[in-house]
Amino acid sequence: MLAFWHRYKRNRSAVFGLVVIVLVVLMAATADFLYPFDPFRLAGKPLSAPGTNGFLLGSDSLGRDVAAGIVHGAKTSLLIGLIATLVAVFIGILFGALSGYYGGQLDNMLMRITEIFQTIPSFIFAILLVAILKPSIYSVVIAISVVSWPGVARLVRGEFLSLKSREFVQACHTLGMSDLRIMLREILPNCLSPIIVIGSLMVATAILIESGLSFLGLGDPNIMSWGFQIGAGRTMLRSAWWVCTFPGVAILITVLAINLVGEGLNDALNPRLRERN
């Protein structure tokens, strides 16, 4: 573990990304303490500029506090990003492992299904799903996981394909081990590194999709989110720039930080790339 941290910290920008993420997580965790009231609450004079009328980052057209929205929105973004990614990784591992391990017709079938999902443009597909399911936090999570699992499935399938013919797996067959045990205990631990890397990058994509959906008004109407804030302020971009800008910056920094961390993990987990610098 210590050696891993040692390798990770050689990548400066990855460390920076990690610090930013920790800050965002802290912000989300202390949201109820920093802004104990509902972020939808009308807190004061509408369209106050940042620093006026007691608003740190200004207020929107209905007098809602932008700063409170960002802090509470961080909770939404991180939660949705994380849960949607976990669900997608789970589905992806399931599909990838089965088709890589068993091969043959099952592989053929599962991969064709995967391709169907891959050929539909993912954001439009997500919109469609949320529209059908009615906007709620659950449907957003479902939509995001449904559009992002195929990448994981492809990756896991490739890893399983190459690992299953390795001699240590064959040795397990000769010991009479069951397929499930071989997949879970022998092969899966050996492909965790790439899964962790792709998963970390998927969190960033999930946050972007969620913001996009909320921006279009397809997010959960009862939960504050960054995308919703941008959507609410977009008509006033020229008169009240702060309403859109701060949530936008929040998205930018968070997604960037997650990508940096993902790349750092990749460098640290993949020993061959490690030698590059």
Binding site: E167, F168, Q170, T174, P189, N190
Partner: peptide, 17 residues
């Protein structure tokens, strides 16, 4: 009854166990 010793000592042991 029947067991096998493999050729490549680097590939025949699971690195994670």
């Amino acid at each position: 009854k029947i067991q096998m010793v493999f050729q490549d000592p680097f590939a025949s042991l699971n690195p994670r166990i």
